[in-house]
């Protein structure tokens, strides 16, 4: 519990945490019509999908600092030796990340999607998928962040490592939204999204802890 509080405080304050993510997200939403042309029909088609994609990219932003600050000032060593297992520490970090960045993004995403021309009926679903998918993004991202501890070019490296891991939630999340918009079965992809996010939340910390121990050795 103390751990969670600390992680929450850290990630909220770190680099303007949620504000930065939301600002990045707004920037992406602004750039998209500039890139594809303002024709409403065109935009509306890609709106839900690209809102979802921007979510994935925004989650990448604060990943680098997830473990790095503690690694650099030696706190990670202490945490590794401490009473709580390292897996739990890693899980707490990702959860804190999720609460501070994914939650605000989950609120911003429907707004952006509608601004890009998606129908307002999609808003609740976009919010829900963003929340659930955000969990998956945070934990997968955590794996990438832990693996690239102590290496050069951390940020870019994390993105490259994590891309294959992001593919399934991106597909399922965008698929769920599109299915809903098209009147098709949207519960199945949503369930798969939940399954993936829960799986990464459950298994990810083990990989993260192993990677952290490796970096500390």
């Amino acid at each position: 519990m103390v751990l969670m509080r600390r992680e929450l405080a850290l990630s909220w304050g770190r680099g303007g945490g949620p504000m930065l993510a939301v600002a990045f997200y707004a920037a992406m939403a602004t750039l998209l019509p500039l890139a594809t042309g303002p024709a409403p029909s065109q935009l509306a088609v890609v709106a839900p999908g690209s809102a979802w994609l921007a979510l994935a990219l925004a989650s990448l932003l604060s990943l680098e600092r997830l473990f790095e600050r503690d690694y650099e000032d030696g706190a990670l060593d202490l945490l590794a030796l401490g009473p709580a297992p390292l897996e739990l520490v890693a899980a707490a970090k990702c959860l804190a990340q999720w609460i501070t960045t994914a939650a605000p993004l989950a609120l911003a995403a429907p707004v952006a999607a509608v601004a890009l021309g998606a129908s307002t009926a999609l808003m609740p679903l976009i919010c829900i998928t963003a929340l659930i998918g955000g969990l998956g993004f945070c934990f997968c991202g955590g794996i990438g962040a832990a693996l690239s501890l102590g290496s050069r070019r951390g940020g870019l490296l994390i993105a490259v490592i994590v891309l294959p891991l992001f593919a399934p939630p991106v597909i399922f999340g965008a698929g769920a939204i599109e299915a809903y918009a098209g009147g098709l079965d949207w519960r199945t992809p949503l369930l798969f999204l939940c399954a993936y996010s829960l799986a990464t939340a459950g298994l990810g910390p083990f990989a993260m802890a192993a990677a952290c121990r490796n970096a500390l050795s």
Binding site: P164, P168, I171, F172, P189
Partner: peptide, 17 residues
């Protein structure tokens, strides 16, 4: 090891999609 678990999931997800 993470990747080897992930690849079947990717195949499955794209297939579904």
């Amino acid at each position: 090891l993470v990747g080897v678990v992930n690849l079947p999931i990717v195949v499955f997800s794209v297939d579904w999609w």
